[in-house]
Nucleic acid binder design. Sequence first.
DNA 1: GACGCTTGCTACTAAAAAAGTAGCGAGGTA
DNA 2: TACCTCGCTACTTTTTTAGTAGCAAGCGTC
Lengths: 111, 111
Amino acid sequence: MALPTPGLPVRGSATGKPIMALLDLLGRTWSLAVIWQLNQGPATFRELQKRCEKISPSLLNKRLKELKSLQLIDIQEQGYGLTQQGQSLFKIIAPLGLWSDQWALHLQTDN
Amino acid sequence: MALPTPGLPVRGSATGKPIMALLDLLGRTWSLAVIWQLNQGPATFRELQKRCEKISPSLLNKRLKELKSLQLIDIQEQGYGLTQQGQSLFKIIAPLGLWSDQWALHLQTDN
DNA sequence: GACGCTTGCTACTAAAAAAGTAGCGAGGTA
DNA sequence: TACCTCGCTACTTTTTTAGTAGCAAGCGTC
């Protein structure tokens, strides 16, 4: 699938509204998880494979290329890591950690 | 695919850590977009189809069932709408709107 | 300089998910 | 009765992801 590039047609928007490009990108399998894992710190390819349990190398590589192209990650001394942009994106989604715990609790008590 | 239920094995976590269940859910095609669109207000099935350009009815239905099961949306008077939980989740991701605009700008000026 | 080990991948096939399209049954309206 | 719209289901094709094997390059050892 093509890179979800702002300005070009993407899933959910023929005109490529940035938010839709972003949601398209983040909506791809493992995208969010890779960003989440990289926030723990840079990692080599194989290390990242371990952090993401069970991701296949081909898909990991594909995602890494996408995220690299869209400048959310890049290659650093210790391997792949979040760029400034990637970090600022992570700051937004970081609260999902706590939120998900409450959500899990809610789902439990409520069924 | 099975519902990404906290506590059960999900993509990225054999133990079903809530955050991983959430990232699995949100990482599915159109999930994030549906939530995003529903924040504009409740919508009937067909209305939602229009808001999400080009989503197929079968997939929309599948996503709606998932989101309903996980209590992020429910059926209201005017159609599908975000639950309290759904709204609190949206509040977290809402800043993605502005962020994506800056991201788009950055990608433009920088290539 | 041949050895064994790790790393970053590529290549390939099988399985699963998503796209795309037709249309049904229920309900309202005229 | 005829004609809408609505919420979907059923089905086929296309695309994505999973899963697995293994290669080429770089290191350290002896």
